[in-house]
Design a protein around this nucleic acid. Structure first.
Lengths: 364, 364
DNA sequence: TATGTTGTTTAAACCGCTTTAACGACCGCG
DNA sequence: CGCGGTCGTTAAAGCGGTTTAAACAACATA
């Protein structure tokens, strides 16, 4: 009767079932050596009291927190409208949740990032962390190793510095976007890049550049778009302000947010998409299919990515290491924002006369 | 030097400082009764070893998890492009992080929702939860009370069922949107609503309706937009397919996502915004300022909301209750998507008679 | 009868921290 | 000189589990 006002503990269950606490623990964890009858009596008692073991207590005795950590390092204003994280997190959950584990989320400014990981490690609040948004010369792989905090890199293996990496190749999407544009007659293809510190921004830019060169063209200008609407708009204004002869006839954006803003700017400037300029994004935002015109983009399976990353982190925690995983690459979704290059007018004469574009696929 | 290979514990610090573990605990927690000199010696030892108390151990001994829970109940496809949560979470973090507490995030399907809260409570993994996306007759306030899990409702006090509510009024934004539209000469104002199960969807719809009636007008049709791009697009197609005489000259959407999709549909149908139809959203998505034309919307301070909710939950945990909080209401940001009603009767312009809109009715 | 054996069950130690109560040293005071 | 009062410190008992090793029946073996 006493147990009405506090949550039941293992002792309450033991008392009700008429056994010792250890027996309860054995029953719960499916340990052998308990009589069948006893075990079911214990489980019945546990169910009757609605008892579930306290995670802090389990964490303490096992030395396992039963949680993964995810630190999002974002300027407060860059938060929002990123469709990646919610889906990615849902994917992580799909692995964690069935076994009752959880995800501990921290949002920090860039200055507190290292402290956030250090704390997570020292606190023993998580068993490992997922590293996303990898940057060039990212300090985090070294940091987590030093902290002896199991970690998995969500991204390109090249920047994993020895950690297990779970990658999803975004390059084919950019390559085929450019190839498609070239097929459509574009000869002047610009790029609006993401923040330069991000590994994936660079990769996207490189894929664009490689594909443009592979077509025998000179890469058009690259402007920073910062993955933001503001940045994309500003970059687009600059690109399209050029004299019609120098103006790119297609712009490949590093993400949908900047691309969508770019669409609006094109309209503002009185240019039609895709008649005057073609536009491609990346992410396949829910809105992409509903911009005007619908935005060509590429979809990455963020949900699957999250799940794969969580499984990899499991393996790292258990075995100390895990094989890299490479997911199916993002695929281009050509939509109406890509169209034939404007006839006659824009484009560079030298290129048009000399170049015989051989479209070939770059092996990854 | 034995402590090289495992994380230091309070005992290691105690040994290094030449005191007992209790003394270390006292020093760490700023308890009185320790000599100044001893205290600083202990803190120095702790710093030298890089020791921080284990959260599971702390949680166990003082019966507090040091974490808040947030359960997002979402259909997997409705995840993404919601700018609210990232900012809200960042706000929660701003309260939690300085004291080293964390946010435990769970994403579940609708069927597992109750189980998720039950588990969170039984597990003692969190000290309380934040309830967001309140629904009509939401079972969660009753559930959390029954589980004796401290909770705060993020939303309208009316649906809090006795729990502390932290609200941010979205109604003024809708009211003034309608008022503005009326001033601009609109007489036929439609609404694209959010999912009917959400309290805030209903509230927005009610505000719209009240404001329309207050202006002496008959509320135009209400169509379900489901807060999604798809839903917003479908609703818009239906609204604008009507004969020009019956067609609304302004549409108030429950959120930006559906409104932005609506913009695109209007363009597709050959209607100009705002010349033929005015459009208003809600959320002030980063993209809102960059749609074509820029989307009138309203900004709610999600960051502040998160912080306020976290503080309220603190109070509930400490005192068992807390006063409701009402934040500054969202403010309308009139942008170019709102304009004067088309002249010459309820929406008119010659070339529109030639338009053959593709109407597709979709069940929502 | 002593000796294993096997199958169940439990006592007790432990995980790392907090906290209460007790302890010894030192103080001034009557 | 003995007493109560501070002050600084620590021993020890939790918190709620897990786990190891030992206890205990019951029963077969030598």
């Amino acid at each position: 009767m006493a147990a009405r006002d506090r949550r039941p503990t293992i002792a309450d269950v033991a008392k009700l079932a008429g056994v010792s606490p250890s027996a309860v623990s054995f029953a719960l964890n499916g340990r052998p050596g308990l009589a069948k009858e006893t075990k079911s009596r214990i489980l019945a008692a546990a169910a009757e009291l609605g008892w579930r073991p306290s995670r802090p207590a389990q964490a303490l005795s096992h030395g396992k927190a039963g949680a993964f950590g995810l630190v999002l390092t974002r300027e407060t204003d860059a938060i929002g409208a990123d469709p990646f994280f919610p889906a990615f997190i849902a994917g992580v959950e799909s692995v964690l949740s069935p076994r009752g584990d959880s995800l501990v989320l921290h949002v920090t400014g860039p200055d507190d990032e290292a402290a956030a990981y250090t704390r997570l490690a020292a606190d023993r609040r998580v068993d490992g962390v997922l590293l996303t948004d990898m940057r060039i010369d990212d300090p985090r792989p070294a940091l987590t190793s030093e902290l002896r905090l199991p970690a998995v890199v969500v991204g390109d293996p090249e920047c994993a510095q020895g950690l297990c990496a779970v990658g999803l190749d975004d390059r084919p999407a950019f390559t085929s976007a450019v190839e498609r544009l070239v097929e459509l007659g574009h000869r002047h293809i610009a790029h609006v890049a993401g923040p330069q510190e991000f590994r994936h921004s660079r990769r996207r830019q490189e894929s664009w550049e490689l594909a443009v060169r592979a077509a025998g063209l000179t890469p058009g200008p690259v402007l920073p778009g910062g993955f933001t609407a503001d940045g994309g708009a500003a970059a687009t204004r600059e690109l399209l302000a050029a004299d019609a002869r120098d103006r790119p006839t297609a712009i490949v954006y590093a993400n949908d947010l900047s691309a969508t803003a770019g669409l609006a700017v094109a309209h503002q400037l009185g240019l039609a998409v895709p008649e005057d300029v073609s536009v491609v994004g990346y992410d396949d935002t829910p809105l992409a299919a509903y911009t005007h015109p619908p935005l060509a983009s590429a979809r990455a399976d963020a949900l699957g990515w999250g799940a794969a990353a969580a499984r990899a982190l499991d393996a790292v925690i258990k075995d100390g290491r895990a094989d890299d995983v490479e997911l199916a690459p993002a695929e281009l979704l050509p939509r109406a924002s890509m169209g034939p290059a404007p006839a006659g007018g824009p484009g560079r004469k030298s290129e048009r006369t000399t170049i015989r574009p051989t479209v070939r696929r770059e092996p990854c």
